[in-house]
Design a protein around this nucleic acid. Sequence first.
DNA 1: ACAACGTTCCTAGCGTTGCTAGATCTGGAG
DNA 2: CTCCAGATCTAGCAACGCTAGGAACGTTGT
Lengths: 184, 184
Amino acid sequence: MSIQARRERERAEREKLIVTAARELVETEGWDAVTTRRLAEEVEYSQPVLYSHFKGKDAIMAAVALEGFADLATELRAAAPSGLAAVATAYTSFAERRPALYDAMFSQAVDLPFASPATPAALHAGFDALSDAIRPHVGDDDLGLLTETFWAALHGLATLTRGGRLPRDAHDERLTILLSRFTT
Amino acid sequence: MSIQARRERERAEREKLIVTAARELVETEGWDAVTTRRLAEEVEYSQPVLYSHFKGKDAIMAAVALEGFADLATELRAAAPSGLAAVATAYTSFAERRPALYDAMFSQAVDLPFASPATPAALHAGFDALSDAIRPHVGDDDLGLLTETFWAALHGLATLTRGGRLPRDAHDERLTILLSRFTT
DNA sequence: ACAACGTTCCTAGCGTTGCTAGATCTGGAG
DNA sequence: CTCCAGATCTAGCAACGCTAGGAACGTTGT
């Protein structure tokens, strides 16, 4: 019994190692640097071990994205006591500071279940933080739908800015406009 | 003179053929089907001719994206007389009906110059249509910044819905909320 | 009309990608 | 100490974007 337990523990540790390495790689060198060969070299194992842990490269990036959601939730929660404006700033700041991770969360990993019973806790946590912050301004609208709408607006600002579609220097003004329209 | 003109005309026609083929391919079979080999087969030429017209695959997709912007601008202009709500619906409807094309416009083609003197007319046209529709509700805000913000919100709704991040059936309610916050 | 030319185009191939089958090695059990 | 099972690696596949080199074409000058 004990030896099997040790093996499973080692396996779990190695899985964590893979995800961490993938995350560091994508954050420091960007998405293109994350290849299965490079990642295998980074964790000092051969390529096939990656596939004994994950179904494929997409699954690895989904795991990275999940960690990203956990981080985002933490940052949003920290900003929550300061009000909606602080949360909105925290959100776009996160996307700006960790663009590759944000990409993994919203552009790459399609396999994560959203808005369903199987939705991981980390996703719920971030959504709830946003929801709490916007509750004072809910008015006659449904809180869940209002949160989704506001989230979408933040996400739009973040991605369009990242892609060079919106000039970066006017970001604060746009955020101010958005907040003025969503606060009562 | 005439024979060179004919050659240039044929070249232009073939370039158009390539972009059209790429566009049909991406709209019918999705992004993964667009490979240089497949595209070359589709236009009945060998791969290298693609590179005599475009710098690389990215440039081809940028050309496809540009056509997408022209289409979007047309649809937005058509909806403009009916007011902001109609324009907003037209926008998200476009993203919903042609998801792969919308991806090309906003996720893939990074080479297109936005918000700069070199911005192609098709991009300006769509932005202007949105701008005209929102002008009646500008209030004390800057029209350009307000347009950008509203555009970002629509884009966020479109992309999050497309990625399965937002349940599709409540889309209309979210759009209603957004409009209620952006109309005065 | 014909040969030489320049351009256009294709065949073939390079390096890299995600992923996998078969060989090899390791570590626990009898 | 030997054997077996499971874990791990080496080697390779098919497909990718892209490019060099030569063949084939149409144009031009004699």
